[in-house]
Design a binder for these strands. Structure first.
Lengths: 235, 235
DNA sequence: TGTATTTTATTTGTCGACAAGAAAAATGCG
DNA sequence: CGCATTTTTCTTGTCGACAAATAAAATACA
């Protein structure tokens, strides 16, 4: 029965419905539970969450504004595709934001920022030890986002957040189960170097390490992509 | 009568209501017709446009996603304030995007891009001659946005668009009627140099001129701000 | 008169229903 | 059997109404 698969139909606070739907759909999209091209049906969601279509629609508008879904006028709305032909533009922007936010963090960070940053670095370390790839990606994201927050530039923060989200999709598509090797450990060491440079307020060192770290990540992803593509062709 | 002040209540196409409201509100906010802090009333808008609150609400969600309005839960929604204490973060991001997009334009532009860019530069020239400050700002925006489009990086384009919008508000707040001098002409000349560098695919020259142009604009705005602030203090 | 408390009023958030638009299915025709 | 046309079906976009939440007003009380 659908009633057993309908745990969210209980009474909820007044304004929380939209955020609930928004966050769940967002996570499902970024984790590729809803893959690119998947149809997002309003009625279905409304029934699933036990609410009217109005709050569903509002959540969808927010997702569309962030580019996570595309809505065809008068027709279905679907999860947006990953723009493979222009993936290099993603790498370009990601690298620049890594560098800029780390620079600014070295310049403007406050003591409490370092606490948060080290906390996420600790979470990353634990994920590496446990071989928890999902937690690893999440902690990596939070680590860099915390650094960007320490840089205190909301414009960079907004773009960087979008880039990290998109990166989460790409990573989930190409990275898992493709022989990660010991790169997580390399990334951990680079993270340590970043924290040290930020804490020492050494802007140039922060920039240099951030750039190196970005190159490391990008080339990792690119290697995974070519590996995957070659498998496609060989068949 | 309100009926005479209700010209939009005619029959319109099905999906166009939201975009209409969105674009009008957006323009009104960026032109400071709706100043920061102004209350945006759903019922009022619904009556004014002769439509239900539902499409109004959808437009407001989009505007909120772009940071142009802030919605207090269960309470009014208002035009977002300009973050003066952190204006330097705006200048920082604007300068970086000027540089990056111009660099990429020099690298990746196609012939048709140059046509569009020169067209907006022509519009800018006409606005300077006519002393049309509003058209001048608009043409300046379109000019740089066209350059960014030629750079073909949608992530930079999105951030740059937001920055140019915010800049439009700031310019309108401080710039007009404060003794513009002959800076429009200086900017025109710099634009010419940018076009030349882009057309010649000289990346380093494009970067250098874009940076210089950004510094020019930023210092102009800062000068206008301090001028304005001093007047405030003198009273 | 000043303050705490109740009442009213206004605005938002949500709902169910209906109409418009477009794809899919069914029908007609060569 | 293949193609054009009509009908059906399904999804979206919009509407008017109602309930929850909050601010403002009115009232009670010291």
């Amino acid at each position: 029965m659908s009633s057993s698969a309908n745990p969210a139909a209980t009474d909820r606070k007044r304004g929380s419905g939209v955020r609930m739907v928004y966050e769940l759909l967002r996570d499902q999209i970024l984790d590729l539970e809803l893959p690119p091209g998947a149809i997002v049906d309003e009625n279905q969601l409304a029934e699933r969450f036990g609410m009217s279509r109005t709050p569903i629609r509002e959540a969808l508008v927010r997702l569309a504004a962030e580019g996570l879904i595309d809505t065809l006028p008068n027709r279905s709305t679907m999860v947006s595709n990953i723009d493979f032909p222009n993936l290099h533009t993603f790498f370009d922007a990601l690298t620049l934001m890594y560098r800029v936010t780390t620079r600014l963090a070295a310049e403007y960070h406050q003591p409490e920022d370092l606490v948060a940053i080290r906390q996420y670095q600790k979470a990353y370390e634990l994920a590496v030890k446990d071989g928890d790839e999902i937690g690893l990606v999440a902690a990596n994201r939070e680590f860099h986002y915390a650094i960007a927050e320490a840089g205190r530039n909301r414009y960079y923060l907004a773009l960087f957040g979008r880039l990290l989200d998109e990166g989460r999709r790409i990573l989930r598509l190409y990275y898992y189960g493709s022989g990660t090797g010991d790169y997580p450990q390399i990334w951990f060491d680079e993270h340590e170097a970043i924290v040290a440079a930020v804490a020492a307020r050494d802007i140039e060192a922060a920039d240099r390490i951030a750039r190196q770290h970005a190159n490391q990540i990008v080339s990792q992803i690119q290697a995974a992509i070519t590996r995957d593509r070659r498998q496609d062709i060989d068949i």
